[in-house]
Design a protein around this nucleic acid. Sequence first.
DNA 1: CACAGACGAGAGCACTGCTCTTGACAGCCT
DNA 2: AGGCTGTCAAGAGCAGTGCTCTCGTCTGTG
Lengths: 250, 250
Amino acid sequence: MLSSVRTAPIRGRLPPMAATRTARQRAREELTLEIKEEARRQLAADGAQKLSLRAVARELGMVSSALYRYFPSRDDLLTALIIDAYDALGERAEAAVAAAPPGDARARWRALCHAVRDWALAHPHEYALVYGTPVPGYRAPQATVEPAARVALAMAAVLRDAPAGGRPGARVPEGELAGQLSALAAQLAPGVDPALLARGLAAWTQLFGMVSFELFGHLVGSADPAGPFFAHTVEEAADLLGLPDSPPAP
Amino acid sequence: MLSSVRTAPIRGRLPPMAATRTARQRAREELTLEIKEEARRQLAADGAQKLSLRAVARELGMVSSALYRYFPSRDDLLTALIIDAYDALGERAEAAVAAAPPGDARARWRALCHAVRDWALAHPHEYALVYGTPVPGYRAPQATVEPAARVALAMAAVLRDAPAGGRPGARVPEGELAGQLSALAAQLAPGVDPALLARGLAAWTQLFGMVSFELFGHLVGSADPAGPFFAHTVEEAADLLGLPDSPPAP
DNA sequence: CACAGACGAGAGCACTGCTCTTGACAGCCT
DNA sequence: AGGCTGTCAAGAGCAGTGCTCTCGTCTGTG
């Protein structure tokens, strides 16, 4: 396996720039996009379960076997859609945080949480693809971990930039958890109190727990239009995270 | 609806007791159980996605079409498994609560939470079937709602029997949420403070959010052996719910 | 220009859920 | 006791799936 990268030419001449790419390359990229587009359409319509390579190919006017030139298997197509979904959600969350008043940590937190829920409600099947049951065998491809972390990173940034203080009554993490938290803090939110970080993790799991419960129908008997409950709990979580209650500049 | 049950004959003679059921009925019941058993085995091995009616039939030494006499469709088989899973989890949770010291609300809460997680870890695919992505079309059959509520009911009972007090700093639910909570309280935990009930709902979603995140691999980068984080968060949730910190009778 | 590689098309394999028909048997009523 | 009725397992078959392999064709490149 001396030439592992197949597309990279040995000659130093041509960097495959956007302008100098050949017609084949352009066609390939466009077709790849079209395939993902159609697949996403079917995903949104019927869910990941019913996404069929043959149906995608049919809709695109090509034969099913030709599609395997672009995605070696159905799982690879799904993986591509997963990455796109993570990126779309992450981008939305980051944009919401960026649009909130920079000094108002609570507003930033609130914007983040509601952005996640809004995106999930708008793209239920894509959300389910990403935060629902993993596909049968499942091995998270390395390519997914970075986009998957975007929401968590945005949350960490909100906490990092929030005025210190925290909420009293937080238990101090001990033992193995303390180690995990300090390692985590070192890599994404240096200087954050471990107890606060533990609450951040908890709020993170709760955020997606609420959204999943709402989307998957587990709240129908209780908090049925889940909006008010969601908003309330987001505020309570903000309280727990010690985010100041009133904006500094109204 | 005096004679809603179909199997009850109009003649007064034979009540279909366990002893007096015909050979056909017995065979049918046994085969139904065997089918579910084998299906559950395949579910545990490969996940709901790969559960195949033909494979189940093959393993049972019968032909696939015969299986449709017992379950009219694959979805119906899955629904039966869903109900069983709900029941198994609910029973486990109830048993854990019952085994905890009756007066120690925190111990009961802790037992409930850990029972849920332990069951989920022991039966990941059954958990995913129930709390993961709902099946494609999905309409929750009425038969599932009662077993589905068992864990929530057990949680409500723990809160109801806990010494009143709650934790200061709870936001009072307003508007639509207040109405939902009072309706909810009326039917499963009368006399519970709405603010506390809101926190109970939040804890409920968080519990399953944590378990789902752990099972579906979303915690690998952060709280990797998730046990310590789970235990910590369960205690913090108990704090929030105002459950007394130390057992009254050690 | 010639050639290696990429490409689309088609046939085909093994599998799925599900339907329909057929023949055998059990349970019930007279 | 005998006949009717409904249940049952079995088999064939349909439409659909993911995926593989082979075949000519065209394209970009040396």
